[in-house]
Write a protein that binds this DNA or RNA. Sequence first.
DNA 1: CCGCCTCGAGTTCT
DNA 2: CTCGAGGCGG
Length: 718
Amino acid sequence: MSKSEIEKRTSLAEIASRLSASRRVKKLRNEISRLRDAYHIENAPNVTDDVYDSLTRELRTLLEEYPEFKDASSPLNRIAGKPLQKFKKIKHKIRMLSLNDVFNPEELYEWEKRIKKLLPPSPLQGEGQRGEVNYFCEIKFDGLAVSLIYEKGILKTGATRGDSFIGEDITLNLKTISSIPLVLPKPCPDYLEVRGEALMSKKTLSFLNKINERIGKPLFANTRNATAGSLRQLDAKLVAERHLDFYAYDIAQISNDEKIKNHSEKHKYLKELGFNVGESDAVCKDLTEAFRFIEKFEIERPKFPFGTDGIVVSIDNLEFQEILGVVGKAPRYMVAYKYPAERATTIIKDVKINVGRTGVLTPLAIFSPTLVAGSTVSKATLHNMDQIERLDLRIGDTVVIEKAGDVIPKVVEVLTRMRTGKEKKFKMPEHCPTCGDKVQKRETSSFQILNPRGSHAEGEGRRGEKFERSELSVAYYCANSKCPAKNERYLEHFVSVFGIYELGPKILRRFKDEGLITDAADIFTLTKEDIAPLERFGEKSAENIIEEIKNKKKIPLSKFLWALGILHVGEETARDLAQHFGTLEKIIFSARQDLASIDSIENIGPAVLKSLHDFFRDKNNLNFIKKLQKNGVVVEKVGKREAGKLNGLTFVLTGTLSEMSREIAKEKIISLGGKVSGAVSKNTSYVVAGEESGSKEKTALKLGVKILNEKEFLKLLL
DNA sequence: CCGCCTCGAGTTCT
DNA sequence: CTCGAGGCGG
């Protein structure tokens, strides 16, 4: 290909991406406008704020790259919705600005770098140090920004921000808020404009929503919507019932302002005049201190009585504020540090398939890296085809993602309005992506009584006759026992149950590729000489691995059963089986019997039984067990379980314990006769909550399950 | 049959 | 954490 041809090619590619960018901009604009109208005008958002923010961010970045698509009518150029007709308009003497957002420490440091360049060398502070500044940190309340004007100490007008130039006159409504003084204490300035946030406490919101729920009215999504909705009531009496609150954060104008030099002094003065101001607000001498403030409040935030969405960081010195000035619709001397959004939007780039240990094929959504709840994620499991169909998810779709329990990414919803028509449906491959074997569905063993009236398509049975129907499970799977992906997953499972932590997935793969092992049993005959010569392995690490393997050759029966990877036999079921049978030999003997002749066992139903039967009748599996034993694996039989003091108690562990890992805590509980389960239910005896416990603690509260802190738990173990 | 509870299996990022 | 599926009591 000639050079000019290549150039032509790239420019063609550019045109193509420009074109698709233009389409995307249009889509984003439409959707943002629609959401904004739904949000500001009806106060009934159908998507959370985070999603709106996320879309807006994408549009902003796109417009930075393609400024030619900028448009005066763009929703970005407006700060809020059109003012409603029903309220009188008020023109702000000083524009009500909004703030630029930063989302992480790096962005805050960049902001600092930018402003310091603009500040003059200060003779007052240090030896000609450029821009030595104090920062003022305050909590950013999530309510409605309001401007109050006092003349001769009497509240004259109160207005919303509106479009930043013109707001709505909601004086009557604001007068119902008890924390807004109607008259200022003397001495007071002749003229004063106070800026602050009208808001509703979380308690009031939940109370209000309870009532709304009872009478079938739509619920408010958050305290800001509730505040906005309340202040838009035409009848001030109704507003009074909403118990709104007010926190002041700025003085926009004052008739005798000579003595106020810093933003922090404004707060002090406002407090003297009888306004609420943020109680923890603080002057910080540098950003390190500011971060301490930010981190501290992040912990308190969930328990804080009002909704908040971040911390406002500003330059304390008002002279500096003036020098820095305003760019666009936001001041340069002040930014909002936003805590991580719980939801965000992204575009599905592809759907890939993972092959699990049991051969189950799980679809995995691949998307552009997206910041959500504090970390950047790029994929999320879709579980199975049913889930994909439920979501109606297609490749190329714009989707809403969140992190379930703050950890695991999840696709919540598809924004179908963002579709261009080019999205592609995903189809489960007919062949396994690793081994190429035909993909199938497993039969679930479910028994059904034929419906006496309706006859099923197949099985013309007599009335009420019991049928063994084979229903198909939701999951597709690869049945090939030699499938390399399956075997790899199995090896990983095996070593993890055996607790051979030195052997991670990467190392196992190496050993397999090098031909050192073909199955899990081979692990136990590895020698130092096998491993040490391999690249990137030293004498010492080889020794460690061999030592570790040697130490793990003895294994309790329950763990051994679990390690075998028998269908439907996991950790718990393996324990039940071990308890009941006591030795491996007895299990094998019983399982090989005719299914009907086996006594019933606690928690073991037909499906597990069938699976055990099939497993132990398979010669390959018996040979594998023999090989393990030959290679030195010793299965310890189960002694009679002593009646421990935790007998009959079920525990759920959540959060991080400082004294021991959760793994160890679990073993302790079991050794004392207790049980550990994953989810809280009404049968749970205790929830043990460590540091940073998750949603389980909440469910425990809801269900009235006893919660133990670490100390109380340790006492119980003694 | 249905509804609850558990278990099993797959999974993400730092 | 979440979804599917097995076990079991009503």
